[in-house]
Computed example of a mutant assay.
Amino acid sequence: MQCKAGKPIGLIEVRRRPGKPTEGLMTVGPLVVRCALGRTGTSMLKREGDGATPIGDLRLLHGYFRADRSPSGPPGSRFRLAPIDARDGWCDAPGDRNYNRPVRLPYPTSHERMARQDRLYDVCMVSDWNMRPAIRNRGSAIFFHIARPGFPPTEGCIAVAPLAMARILPLIGPRTRIRIHR
């Protein structure tokens, strides 16, 4: 399903919650929603495995959804959302030629499985962090996805509640940037 009505929001802003470096407040036009950030907070010097959400502007490129958990099809979005299947993965091995790229499983080096048992990637939007070109050890798989209940920290991604994601997706488009503040 594609959402075409109205102009998409150009900028999403994420600010850390006072006293809670692993949580943020995300402003999407008129909406302000709680979000989970990396387990070590935010960082201007993002490194692979440091658990930090990178400070700066990220552009959302495309997304994935769990078709097996979405009987009515993909959620309403201006993005192309591809269904996730059991063979989808994301390479997080800095020395691999497919570092910070989607891969097909089984894959011989370190990777993340996209078809997770939890619901984190029921909707998963891919950001352009460290994509063109992918620089070794600068961080991989910085996604905008569903948060765990209670908003525990992520490994560096930005995560929101399922209802918030459903409200945000129709408001954003391929030119939308997410600005993560200090």
Rank of each mutant, 00 (worst) to 15 (best):
H111D: 06
H111S: 11
E112Q: 03
E112F: 00
E112N: 07
E112W: 06
E112M: 09
E112C: 04
R113M: 07
M114E: 13
A115G: 03
A115K: 14
A115V: 11
R116T: 15
Q117M: 10
D118W: 08
R119D: 14
R119S: 15
Y121L: 05
Y121R: 07
D122N: 15
D122V: 12
V123F: 09
C124S: 10
M125G: 08
M125C: 10
V126F: 02
V126E: 09
S127M: 07
S127Y: 01
D128W: 06
D128H: 06
D128I: 09
W129L: 11
N130G: 11
M131I: 12
M131S: 13
M131P: 06
M131K: 14
R132E: 13
R132N: 15
P133W: 04
A134C: 07
I135S: 12
R136D: 15
R136H: 14
N137W: 14
G139D: 09
G139P: 11
S140P: 12
A141C: 12
A141L: 10
A141G: 01
I142F: 02
I142T: 07
I142N: 05
F143A: 01
F144M: 05
F144A: 03
F144L: 10
F144C: 03
H145E: 00
H145W: 03
I146L: 07
I146H: 10
A147T: 11
A147L: 06
A147S: 15
R148T: 12
R148V: 08
R148K: 14
P149W: 09
G150F: 04
F151M: 06
F151Q: 05
P152H: 11
P152E: 10
P152Y: 05
P153F: 07
P153H: 04
E155Y: 00
E155F: 03
E155M: 06
G156H: 05
C157W: 00
C157N: 08
C157M: 03
I158Y: 03
I158G: 05
A159T: 06
A159G: 04
V160F: 00
V160N: 00
V160M: 03
V160T: 04
A161T: 08
A161I: 05
P162T: 09
P162L: 12
P162M: 10
P162K: 10
L163I: 13
L163C: 07
L163R: 15
A164G: 01
M165G: 07
M165Y: 05
M165N: 02
A166R: 15
A166H: 04
A166Q: 13
A166K: 14
R167D: 11
R167L: 12
R167Y: 00
R167H: 07
I168S: 01
I168K: 04
I168G: 00
I168F: 03
L169G: 02
L169R: 01
L169N: 08
L171Q: 10
L171I: 08
I172T: 09
I172Y: 02
I172A: 05
I172R: 01
G173M: 09
G173E: 11
G173R: 06
G173D: 05
G173W: 01
G173T: 09
R175S: 12
R175F: 09
R175K: 14
R175A: 11
T176L: 02
T176R: 00
T176S: 00
R179L: 02
